[in-house]
Design a binder for these strands. Structure first.
Lengths: 161, 161
DNA sequence: GCAGCATCATATGCACACGAACGATATCGG
DNA sequence: CCGATATCGTTCGTGTGCATATGATGCTGC
């Protein structure tokens, strides 16, 4: 995932300008909050992949692993709620982590529908190694802002949920 | 896409608490800026789908349509750069919009590699209808914040790119 | 009890998102 | 002019994200 792939191009042909059809003015796509959030998400994901310390662990997989590390044992859907993933999404994440033998599961004896998920030894080891990199990713993501602005930004972001 | 699907559950079984393995304390997933950005992105996408005024147009498709509407005619990769999509991603977006006959293309006479993309009449009509909903989506996304906070938030977000 | 409803996990289909690799074309340096 | 390099668009593979549907199980109220 290349960060700022679109910058610093020397060799791009000049684009042909045609009639702009109709400028509804005022509406600038780049100023829309949704577009900015999407780009911030892209940038964070790129930083995460580059810095987290494992070639394959993604942002959502990391969230699931950390929650299991801290909470011990959880059902699949409950883990999904704690990490903001719907049942279909968490299912795929858990399947891939189970394939990597980072997570194991056993049936719940009180509720036959549930799978009790927990980390394997390898899973605990991995989380132990990656956990210190988490704050570094957050730091890098917020790096363009001053310390005061970082606090402000995170506080505002929390209110948007 | 249900907004806040995980709230207000009355019927969830109490989860079984097991040993939390090891609390590395201080590290709270929900406070990490990446997790918050991801959730903000989810929320915005849900609001967009609900409010934009077309059942099938997605955030990225909307961005591509608006750019073409304002710029007239663009090559595929150039449009991708303007909307922050890599070549593989913009290719799929354009393919789906072409299938819906909202976009047409012709070969560039100066550069045989390029496809010159532009809106069809139906595409221009659709953008015309949706364009006024764009600001409403932004407004709804920022609604939890005061006017001053909204300005602050967008300004900070722009610095993170 | 038991009928209706909720929840659990699964499966399918669609849409982003990106890395990697590819062939075709364009451009630049010597 | 020609070789190195870059860009254009495509394809494949993997992973997220959600709507929708389904079958199994659990719970609540009558």
């Amino acid at each position: 995932m290349a960060i700022q792939r679109n910058e610093q191009r020397m060799n791009v042909k000049p684009e042909i300008k045609v009639e702009p059809a109709a400028m509804p003015d005022g509406y600038v796509l780049e100023d829309q909050v949704g577009h900015l959030i999407r780009r911030a998400h892209q940038r964070h994901t790129a930083l995460f992949i580059a810095m987290i310390g494992d070639e394959q662990v993604t942002t959502t997989q990391y969230a699931a692993l950390v929650k299991l590390y801290q909470m011990g044992e959880l059902s699949q859907n409950h883990l999904g709620r704690l990490t903001a993933m719907d049942p279909a999404t968490i299912q795929g994440v858990i399947r891939r982590l189970t394939l990597r033998k980072l997570i194991s599961h056993r049936p719940d004896k009180n509720d036959k529908r549930r799978r009790c998920l927990s980390l394997t030894g390898a899973g605990r080891d991995l989380v132990g190694r990656l956990l210190s990199n988490g704050p570094k990713v957050s730091k890098a993501t917020l790096d363009p802002l001053t310390a005061a602005e970082q606090q402000q930004f995170v506080a505002l972001l929390k209110r948007l949920t």
